[in-house]
């Protein structure tokens, strides 16, 4: 039943045996114990499970782990380097862009995709681009501010 896959996650190659129906998010959370990626819905509506697959943001609930065979995955655990927060992490902190923290990893991973595709995004464009990530705590105002601030910071560096 199982299939052997090799997935490079945050720079480390992992070879594992998985059932074909295993969702990528469950592979990351249960088999690799990378629990920073969360599950918030079952309908692809909330964006909590967003990770980067070969550089592109994807919903890790909508990808089978076997589909990630040979691919590179980046999760929230792979954002900071050498103890330094990534600009997107720093911006969420500085702008009080999180409260309970549950949506935050997915929100940041999508936000990075937004910044990559449109570094000059206006507030309205940021809001539009975050349409697939739900947050129930913040009312989004500080999230938008955080993404704008991270975009500025990343453009400067």
């Amino acid at each position: 039943m199982g299939q052997t896959i090799t997935v490079t996650v945050n720079g480390t190659a992992h070879t594992a045996d998985v059932e074909p129906r295993t969702l990528l998010v469950h592979f990351l959370r249960e088999q690799l114990t990378l629990t920073g990626t969360h599950i918030g819905c079952d309908t692809s509506t909330c964006g909590c499970c967003t990770v980067h697959l070969d550089g592109e943001p994807v919903l890790s609930c909508s990808v089978l782990a076997v589909q990630a065979d040979g691919c590179a995955v980046r999760t929230v655990e792979g954002l900071s380097e050498g103890g330094e927060l990534h600009p997107i992490q720093q911006a969420f902190h500085e702008n009080h862009g999180l409260q309970c923290g549950f949506c935050t990893p997915g929100m940041m991973m999508t936000a990075l995709g937004v910044i990559e595709q449109n570094p000059q995004a206006s507030d309205d464009e940021i809001r539009e681009a975050l349409e697939g990530n739900l947050c129930r705590c913040t009312g989004y105002q500080n999230i938008v501010a955080a993404v704008r601030s991270a975009a500025d910071q990343m453009a400067r560096s």
């Binding site: 655990e77 927060l85 999180l98």
Partner: peptide
């Protein structure tokens, strides 16, 4: 003051119940 809780959440080190085994 910026929140002292934030760092674990932005780095994925929050521990919610589904993260426990």
């Amino acid at each position: 003051v910026l929140r002292k809780e934030d760092r674990k959440f932005v780095t994925g080190e929050g521990r919610y119940v589904d993260d426990l085994r």
